[in-house]
């Protein structure tokens, strides 16, 4: 399974493939998950991306890279897109694309920010906003593989209404035993939450992460400022820089 994606990548150049929208899941008011059917999809690892290309009637094209939010399942490729209001591509994907519509996809791509089910090291996932998307793919890949590797997720999000994959993370299936999730709310915390809304701090990482002695693999994804702050804090806590993998996104990825 894990090898399929890699060997598939080495046998030929990636080509753009027609992808047909099969299903939509509304995640929040501004985000939805899109499941595309892509015939002959070679499979992928949690954390990998696809490039998505839209072509207008006049030939104008726009291309973006999106993280997949679910592991490989046959010819199904699922991405989760957060609307960026002044963006060029995301409003179309979130508000207009309909079941049966086609786009072009190219992938899977990216071999850096990936979790391999064969890696026995404990895992710390730190996501800011929609940075949780590739981390969710890793959580779901762990479940699909029946892995018992201990996972911890720290999810920083503005308000409870902005939480992606809320039901699945708040009421995880039994197969997610060994995954612990901690929440950091930056603007508005739910009733009964411990502490005031705040940006993630060193003490959040100490309380909910792994000690560096356990040599975990850390994956940090979110807006650039968030990623820089968390990655710096993890290195300050003693995690070697090469065990802290990062992925940043900004408005130009919208």
């Amino acid at each position: 399974m894990a090898g399929t994606a890699i060997s598939g990548r080495l046998t030929g150049r990636l080509v753009w493939q027609r992808a047909t929208l099969l299903a939509v899941t509304e995640e929040t008011a501004g985000a939805r998950s899109l499941a595309f059917e892509v015939p002959g999809w070679p499979g992928h690892l949690g954390g990998q991306h696809v490039d998505l290309r839209l072509t207008a009637d006049d030939g104008y094209t726009a291309q973006r890279s999106y993280s997949m939010s679910a592991p490989a399942g046959g010819d199904l490729v699922t991405i989760t897109v957060q609307r960026v209001d002044d963006g060029e591509v995301s409003p179309y994907l979130v508000d207009q694309l309909r079941i049966g519509d086609a786009v072009e996809l190219r992938g899977p791509v990216g071999g850096w920010f990936v979790w391999r089910p064969t890696d026995p090291a404990p895992v710390l996932l730190v996501g800011g906003g929609s940075g949780v998307v590739p981390l969710m793919a890793m959580i779901r890949a762990r479940r699909a593989a029946g892995s018992r590797v201990p996972f911890r997720l720290i999810y920083s999000v503005r308000t409870p209404a902005d939480v992606l994959f809320a039901r699945e993370l708040r009421q995880p299936p039994i197969a997610d035993g060994g995954l612990d999730t901690a929440w950091v709310y930056t603007r508005e915390a739910p009733a009964g939450a411990a502490g005031l809304p705040h940006r993630i701090t060193l003490s959040d990482l100490t309380a909910h992460g792994w000690p560096a002695d356990l040599e975990p693999m850390c994956f940090v994804c979110g807006p650039t400022g968030f990623v820089e702050a968390v990655a710096t804090a993890l290195v300050d806590l003693g995690h070697p820089a090469d065990r802290v993998k990062t992925e940043r996104f900004g408005p130009s990825g919208s």
Binding site: R9, W112, G250, P251, G253
Partner: peptide
């Protein structure tokens, strides 16, 4: 604000047979 090199995986895959983002 910047993206990072992860986003180059697709464009670089047009040129290289290996994943250069991990280089």
């Amino acid at each position: 604000m910047a993206l990072d090199g992860n986003t180059l995986a697709g464009p670089l895959s047009e040129l290289f047979a290996v994943d250069v983002t991990a280089a």
